[in-house]
C-alpha cells in the first residue's frame, strides 16, 4: 500500500447547517505519526470537521483526502484507515467490553484469531483487561478507555478523538492522555480539545480553528515562538530595585531606540493617544505588581546587565518569558 506523507489533507472545506456557516474554508495537512491537537472554542467547528472526515456529513465545498484517497459522504472506503472515538462513545449496554471488541472486529472483517489477540492486548493497555461486567455499569472514564480500544482495534493509520478528555476527572484525563501517547507509536492521532494543557502535554503539532477557519497551524514550538515576542522577565531580589530598573529602561529608550521599538510593535501612536515617550517605554518595559520588570526587547539586555552590575543590584533571575498556549489562544480568537 502506498504511503503518503500526509495522512490527512483538507482543502477549502465548507459546511453550513441551514443559515449557519460552520466551516468557511478549512485547510489542514496532517503528517504521519504525529499527535495533532485540533483546538478551538466550543462551536468552532471541530466536531463538524471530524464528522466530515468520517463521511458522516456531506461537505458543501472542498476536498478531504485520507491517506491519499478522497472521502465521500455515506459509505466511505477511507474509513478503513480511520479509528474514531466520539466525544461521548456509546455502546450496547448488554455487551461486555470483550464482546464489544469482538463485535467491532467482526464487522471490520478481522479474523477470529487476530480479534482475540488484539482485544486482549488493547483491553490490557487501556486497563480493562480484568473487567468482566457488562458495559451498562461502566463509568465515563471506562467508556472512554474502551472507546480508544475499539478505535485502535484494526490498527488504523489515523485515530480521530473528539474531545476525549473533556468530560473526565483529572485522573481519568491523565489515563487517557497516557494511552494516547502510547498509541502514537502505531498511528497518527488527531485530538480535538479546548483543554490547552492537554495539547501542550502530548501534541507535536496543532491547529487552531476559529469561526470556521484554521487561523494558526504548526508545531507547538512554532506556534509558541510566533507569539513569544522576545519578552524577558527580570526579577530583582529587592522589590524596590524593580522600579529603579524600570526607570533606567525608560531613560534608555526615549531617544532613537524608543521610536524604532514603537514602530516594531506596530501600534499607531495617534491611536494610542499618548505622547511618543510614554508610549514607547510602556511598550518596551512593564513593571509588575509582584516586583519584577518585563522587558519586551531583548536588544536592551546588555545595557541592563551593565546597569545591574554597575549599581550592584542583586537579582533572583532573568528569564525568557514563554507565552502559554492559553495566551496565544485567547489573543488569537479575541
Amino acid at each position: 500500500m502506498k504511503e503518503y506523507n500526509n495522512i490527512l489533507e483538507i482543502t477549502g472545506l465548507e459546511k453550513s447547517f441551514g443559515d449557519k456557516k460552520v466551516l468557511r474554508g478549512v485547510d489542514l495537512k496532517i503528517p504521519q505519526n504525529k499527535v495533532f491537537g485540533f483546538v478551538g472554542r466550543n462551536g468552532a467547528g471541530k466536531t463538524t470537521t471530524m464528522k466530515l472526515i468520517l463521511g458522516l456529513l456531506k461537505a458543501d465545498k472542498g476536498d478531504i483526502l485520507v491517506n491519499g484517497e478522497k472521502v465521500t459522504c455515506g459509505n466511505t472506503a477511507t474509513n478503513r484507515f480511520i479509528g474514531y472515538l466520539p466525544d461521548v462513545p456509546e455502546y450496547y449496554p448488554y455487551m461486555t467490553a470483550n464482546e464489544y471488541l469482538n463485535f467491532c472486529g467482526e464487522i471490520t472483517g478481522m479474523d477470529k484469531k487476530t480479534i482475540k489477540e488484539r482485544s486482549a492486548e488493547l483491553l490490557e493497555k487501556v486497563g480493562l483487561g480484568t473487567e468482566k461486567h457488562r458495559i451498562k455499569g461502566f463509568s465515563r472514564g471506562m467508556k472512554q478507555r474502551l472507546g480508544i480500544a475499539q478505535a485502535l482495534l484494526n490498527k488504523p493509520k489515523l485515530l480521530i478523538c473528539d474531545e476525549p478528555t473533556s468530560a473526565l476527572d483529572p485522573v481519568g484525563r491523565k489515563e487517557i492522555l497516557d494511552i494516547l501517547v502510547a498509541a502514537k507509536e502505531e498511528t497518527t492521532i488527531i485530538f480535538s480539545t479546548h483543554i490547552l494543557s492537554d495539547v501542550e502535554h502530548i501534541c507535536d503539532e496543532m491547529a487552531l480553528l476559529n469561526e470556521g477557519k484554521v487561523i494558526m497551524q504548526g508545531s507547538i514550538e512554532e506556534v509558541k515562538s510566533r507569539r513569544r515576542g522576545n519578552a524577558l522577565e527580570i526579577v530583582p531580589e529587592n522589590m524596590n530595585d524593580a522600579a529603579l530598573i524600570y526607570s533606567y529602561i525608560n531613560a534608555l529608550t526615549p531617544a532613537s531606540g524608543a521610536k524604532s521599538h514603537a514602530a516594531d510593535h506596530h501600534v499607531p501612536q495617534e491611536k494610542a493617544g499618548r505622547s511618543p515617550q510614554e508610549h514607547s517605554s510602556s511598550c518596551i518595559a512593564e513593571l509588575t505588581t509582584s516586583g519584577s520588570v518585563i522587558l519586551k526587547n531583548e536588544a536592551l539586555l546588555p545595557d541592563i546587565l551593565r546597569y545591574l552590575a554597575d549599581n550592584n543590584i542583586p537579582f533572583i533571575r532573568i528569564e525568557k518569558q514563554e507565552a502559554t498556549l492559553e495566551d496565544i489562544f485567547i489573543e488569537a480568537i479575541m
Binding site: 468520517l54 458522516l56 459509505n75 472506503a77 474509513n79 478503513r80 480511520i82 474514531y84 466520539p86 461521548v88 462513545p89 456509546e90 455502546y91 450496547y92 467491532c104 464487522i107 471490520t108 472483517g109 475499539q150 484494526n154
Partner: peptide, 11 residues
C-alpha cells in the same frame, strides 16, 4: 448514537 461507531468501522 451507537451506529456511528459501527458505520465508521466500515460496515
Amino acid at each position: 448514537g451507537t451506529l456511528i461507531q459501527v458505520v465508521t468501522k466500515g460496515l
